[in-house]
């Protein structure tokens, strides 16, 4: 499912891209980067609050910064990275253009040489250590980029920070709202009147104007006398469960099995397939009285369903 990457692969073959990416190994990503703020107690406190870290070593007059904050002191934040070379941005742009627009951090390896204390001014240098071959992961297909950052306070090395990200073309997921949409009814000239009625929350039954026989579902002619002429009567909404099945498998999008599919006999005598709502599917029974209601599923879809009558559900 690496379609997003392959889609734009027309500009650069996979091998060509791989070779161009490899060329960035050993190049510098940041030269003489500078921490936005000196190591300071407010940022340490905010960190400890977020992490729920109550270690007394991180508070008071002799406080040290939590060692795991190492990378935080190098972060550009909303104002961006200072000292970043064109090379690193170029590498990321190349990957973006290849469809690898998403990024996720996968590895972080930090070594701490000495603790950082409030007042320490941070500088750092980052080198692109490696760019992987093209890899297919659960998230999508892409490339791992590993950088190593040496962090200094003054001239002294205080720690190193190796960081690996995956730049990838995300696996295309079906949008949840699409997956959740019920199938649309097929509306044609024979049944259009029925669906127009449903839209206005009226359940219309066809009636032959020659022999007065009711029919459902809607058809072009009368099954009894063959007449093509008809009008409609509106169903009262009363009915009973004539028969039903409980659907377990297979699951369809927008339906969560198990659910009951019922054949409802309307008070007028015709039968229709519908849902029984307001009662668990294993409590639906033949002969159960139900009443029509209209359920709105989304902006475009209203369907007649049948609610189990309350006095009957125990």
């Amino acid at each position: 499912m690496s379609d997003a990457g392959d889609g734009k692969g027309a500009t650069l073959s996979e091998d060509e891209l791989g070779a161009r990416l490899k060329a960035y190994e050993g190049r510098r990503a940041t030269v003489s980067g500078r921490g936005r703020d000196p190591v300071n107690t407010p940022m340490i406190r905010h960190w400890c609050e977020a992490m729920g870290d109550t270690n007394p070593a991180y508070a008071g007059p002799d406080a040290i910064a939590p060692p795991t904050m190492l990378q935080a002191w190098t972060m550009g934040g909303l104002s961006g990275h200072e000292g970043r070379t064109g090379d690193y941005d170029e590498l990321l742009t190349l990957l973006d253009e290849a469809g690898c627009t998403s990024v996720v951090a996968t590895d972080c390896e930090q070594e701490y040489v000495r603790p950082l204390r409030p007042g320490d001014e941070i500088t750092f240098d980052t080198v692109i250590e490696s760019v992987s071959e093209r890899k297919t992961t659960k998230l999508g297909t892409g490339y791992f980029v590993t950088t190593r950052t040496d962090v200094r306070a003054g001239r002294a090395l205080v720690g190193t920070h190796r960081f690996r990200i995956l730049k990838y073309a995300p696996v295309r997921r079906r949008k949840p709202e699409q997956a959740a949409r019920r199938p649309r009814p097929v509306v044609n000239r024979d049944n259009a009147g029925f669906w127009e009625g449903v839209e206005r929350h009226r359940l219309l039954i066809q009636r032959c104007t020659d022999c007065a026989t009711l029919r459902f579902p809607w058809l072009p002619g009368c099954n009894k006398c063959g007449s093509p002429d008809w009008d409609t009567v509106e169903a009262s909404g009363e009915g009973t469960v004539y028969s039903y099945v409980v659907m377990h498998h297979p699951p369809f999008p927008a339906f969560s099995p198990p659910y009951a599919v019922a054949l409802i006999e309307l008070a007028e005598g015709v039968r229709m397939i519908s849902d029984v709502v307001g009662v668990p599917c294993d409590k639906v029974r033949i002969g159960m009285p139900v009443r029509l209601e209209f359920q709105v599923y989304d902006d475009e879809l209203v369907l007649p369903v049948f609610r189990a009558r309350e006095e009957e559900t125990v």
Partner: peptide, 30 residues
Amino acid sequence: NILTTNGLVGRYITDHFGPTAELRKVAIRL
């Protein structure tokens, strides 16, 4: 984010070994 995970892992270790414990190295994979 990975930095928070890193912070939580560090906290887990220092919570257990106490405030004198010195972290030397933290290497994690997500």
